[in-house]
């Protein structure tokens, strides 16, 4: 009998190791497939450029260009959450990877956290490039006084976004293609409501209120994602959805 046989490892150990292991393909992918890197940066950049040109067409003051550049950077995160987290479970199920994860002692939460972690690292690098290039090209300046609150809000937003990504992943897992299309359809409305391209006060929401709303979303999404994952996993086992391939 070999030394590694029959050892039931602690759930915490499995949880932590899974996070690292699942983050690994994300980081590797970015380095091996340069075209993905290009796409991930180019899409938000082009989107931002289009909006900059709209503002130029409207002869807007230069400060609005900052909104657009920051919006482009956040768009990278939003698209990442929507497609490489939310949709990833559907892909994993499609090729049978999900069922292999399911029969292993790990948890979907750990897998999703790994996905989020890997994605967040890579997307942060991309977003930083977008801000840098955008700021240089459009000559955007930032005030130092606004930096700390901005970083705080940014981190809160990431927490909320990736929590939502985990929730979406469990919804996609269960509702499959319907949720997939919902994600697609949600893309622009979320861009609109999140004020990616213009100050949120234009929608009648004070900036402070929106910060509070974002902060509240962090625990709500995390909690909802945990509950949804457990519920949906048990429903999926009951209905055989973990083993469904193409629909």
């Amino acid at each position: 009998m070999s030394a590694i046989q029959h050892a039931e490892r602690s759930p915490l150990r499995i949880f932590l190791k899974t996070i690292v292991a699942r983050a690994y393909p994300r980081v590797v992918a970015a380095n091996r497939h340069k075209s993905w890197l290009f796409l991930d940066m180019a899409l938000p950049m082009v989107g931002a450029l289009a909006m900059v040109l709209v503002y130029q067409g409207l002869h807007a003051p230069r400060q609005y260009l900052g909104f657009v550049v920051m919006g482009g950077a956040m768009l990278a995160f939003w698209q990442n959450v929507l497609w490489t987290m939310g949709a990833q479970f559907s892909w994993d199920r499609g090729n049978g990877t999900l069922e292999l994860m399911a029969v292993s002692p790990t948890s979907f939460e750990a897998v999703l956290l790994g996905m989020a972690g890997g994605a967040m690292i890579m997307t942060t690098v991309r977003a930083a490039f977008i801000i840098l290039i955008g700021s240089l090209v459009f000559n955007v300046t930032y005030t130092a006084g606004g930096l700390l609150p901005a970083i705080g809000v940014f981190l809160l937003t990431l927490g909320a976004l990736y929590g939502m990504g985990m929730l979406l992943a469990s919804l996609f897992l269960f509702y499959s293609r319907e949720a997939w299309h919902l994600g697609d359809a949600l893309q622009e409305p979320v861009n609109f409501l999140s004020g990616l391209y213009f100050p949120v006060k234009a929608l009648g929401i004070p900036a402070g209120t929106e910060t509070l709303l974002v902060a509240a979303q962090v625990p709500i999404f995390a909690l909802l994602a945990g509950v949804a994952l457990r519920y949906l996993e048990s429903r999926a086992r009951k209905d055989g959805k973990l083993v469904t391939r193409w629909e």
């Binding site: 499995i14 190791k17 899974t18 690292v20 292991a21 002692p105 790990t106």
Partner: peptide, 8 residues
């Protein structure tokens, strides 16, 4: 990667 899902 799969071995890590088993905590090896």
């Amino acid at each position: 990667m799969f071995s890590q899902f088993y905590g090896m």
